[in-house]
């Protein structure tokens, strides 16, 4: 119970920070839209390639812009000895982990909704299979944010963190990219039954990372 209230505290703090600094609004979201536009430049928009490749392009855009949001979430903590303050605050490590995960997840959700609108408008993709799409977005967001937060802390406070986090996180998230892309394809092509196993796989992924994060965060916080 204490763990959950601590989580709520941390998440509220992070989100308030994001709301006030507007870094996500002014930099991450424009970057995400830029990625969508770049895909259109790279692939010929007239041949229907964009529409066909929408699921893959969408999730790659989510991963890359989400990576920026995650980097941001931990550079906030690295400055001015905030890490020490967090440690001294007496908050449960598991609570800190869940809180950071929650705030990352909320930011990712906002990003995903905007990118979804962008894809529908820019690529002319007609959207069907709402139930599966929403389920996929929820579990994929859970998977990306649980893993991202855990590896974000592994890379936090290091001089090489900007390069280390993608190296650690992107191979780990490969199953999520495969799963979410296939599930989206299934939804958009009107065969949602093919997509549900992937939702299951991503739920298992998220569950593994929640457990690992809850138990692993303690040792990570008490170091150095």
């Amino acid at each position: 119970m204490i763990m959950l209230s601590d989580a709520w505290l941390i998440a509220r703090k992070d989100l308030k920070l994001e709301l006030r600094s507007r870094v996500a609004l002014n930099q991450v979201i424009p970057f995400a839209i830029l990625v969508l536009v770049l895909f259109a430049f790279a692939l010929d928009p007239d041949r229907g390639l964009l529409e066909k490749a929408t699921p893959g392009l969408y999730w790659v855009a989510v991963l890359f812009s989400g990576l920026l949001a995650m980097q941001r979430s931990f550079s906030v903590e690295a400055a001015d000895g905030v890490t020490d303050a967090l440690r001294l605050s007496g908050l449960a490590p598991a609570g800190i982990y869940l809180g950071k995960t929650l705030s990352v997840a909320v930011q990712l959700l906002v990003l995903e909704v905007l990118l979804g609108v962008g894809v529908a408008v820019l690529y002319g993709t007609s959207i069907t299979g709402w139930l599966l799409l929403i389920a996929t977005i929820v579990v994929a967001t859970a998977a990306i944010s649980t893993a991202g937060t855990l590896f974000g802390v592994v890379a936090a406070g290091l001089r090489v963190r900007e390069t280390l986090l993608p190296l650690l996180l992107l191979p780990v998230l490969a199953p999520v990219l495969i799963g979410s892309t296939r599930a989206f394809e299934a939804a958009l092509s009107g065969t949602p039954s093919e997509g549900w196993p992937w939702v299951g796989l991503m739920s298992v992924f998220a569950a593994v990372y929640v457990v690992a994060g809850i138990f692993g965060f303690g040792p990570l916080m008490e170091e150095s």
């Binding site: 191979p171 992924f205 593994v208 692993g216 040792p219 990570l220």
Partner: peptide, 24 residues
């Protein structure tokens, strides 16, 4: 300690990756 966290998740990751690639 940080490497141990990554190492701890190595085998679960390998399983999930294998499973997803196989389905894929």
């Amino acid at each position: 300690k940080r490497a141990a966290i990554v190492g701890l998740l190595l085998v679960p990751n390998v399983f999930i990756v294998r499973q997803s690639v196989q389905w894929w």
